[in-house]
C-alpha cells in the first residue's frame, strides 16, 4: 500500500510518473465509478465514462493546482463527462422518435430496483449510489460532493423515500 499523500502523487504524475497516477486511480476509481453510475444509472456507461474521466485527468493533471484536491477534481471531471453524455443522448433522442419497444421496457423496469434507481432524480441518485458504494458513510459522501453532512443525509433520506414510492407504486 502506497502511503504517499495525494498531493505528492499528483506532483509525481505531473512529472510523467504513470505509477504515481496509478496509485491515485486505485485510491479514487471507486468514487469516480460511483459518481458515474449515480449520474448515468447504467453500469456500462458508468464504466466507460469513469475510464474517460481517469484518462482525461491524467492528461490534464498539470492543470490541477492543489494536489490535495485530486479527489474532488477527478469527480468534477467525471460529472462533467456524464453531463456531456446525457446531453448527447438527449440530442439523439430528439432526432429519433422513441420506439414503442423502448417505452414498454421503461414501464417494465419500474418493477425492479435498478429501474427504480434509474427513475430517481440525478441530484438524489448520485448521493444514494455513492452512499452504498462508500459503505454507507454519509460523511464521506458530503466531503466528496462538497456539501454539508446534514445536506448529504437529507438527500440520502429523500432518495430512499422516493425509491420506496417508485417501488411500491409499480406493484
Amino acid at each position: 500500500m502506497d502511503d504517499r499523500s495525494d498531493e505528492i502523487l499528483v506532483a509525481a504524475s505531473c512529472e510523467g510518473d504513470k505509477d504515481a497516477y496509478a496509485v491515485l486511480v486505485q485510491r479514487h476509481y471507486r468514487h469516480v465509478f460511483a459518481m458515474c453510475f449515480g449520474t448515468l444509472a447504467n453500469v456500462h456507461d458508468a464504466e466507460d465514462i469513469a475510464q474517460d474521466a481517469i484518462l482525461k485527468g491524467m492528461s490534464k493533471i498539470a492543470e490541477l493546482r492543489e494536489g490535495v484536491q485530486f479527489g474532488r477534481w477527478i469527480l468534477r471531471i467525471a460529472g462533467n463527462l456524464c453531463i456531456d453524455l446525457i446531453r448527447r443522448r438527449k440530442r439523439i433522442k430528439h432526432l429519433c422518435a422513441e420506439s414503442p419497444a423502448i417505452a414498454q421496457q421503461a414501464i417494465n423496469e419500474n418493477h425492479d430496483l435498478h429501474g427504480a434507481i434509474k427513475k430517481l432524480p440525478k441530484e438524489l441518485r448520485v448521493p444514494l449510489v455513492m452512499y452504498y458504494f462508500e459503505n454507507k458513510n454519509a460523511k464521506a459522501i458530503a466531503e466528496r460532493l462538497n456539501i454539508s453532512h446534514s445536506g448529504a443525509c437529507q438527500k440520502i433520506r429523500s432518495a430512499r423515500q422516493q425509491l420506496h414510492e417508485l417501488l411500491t407504486c409499480a406493484t
Binding site: K18, Y21, A22, V25, Q26, Y29, R30, E47, A50, Q51, I54, L55, M58
Partner: peptide, 8 residues
C-alpha cells in the same frame, strides 16, 4: 479498475 489501469 484493472481495465482502467491497463488503459493508463
Amino acid at each position: 479498475q484493472q481495465r482502467v489501469l491497463n488503459a493508463i
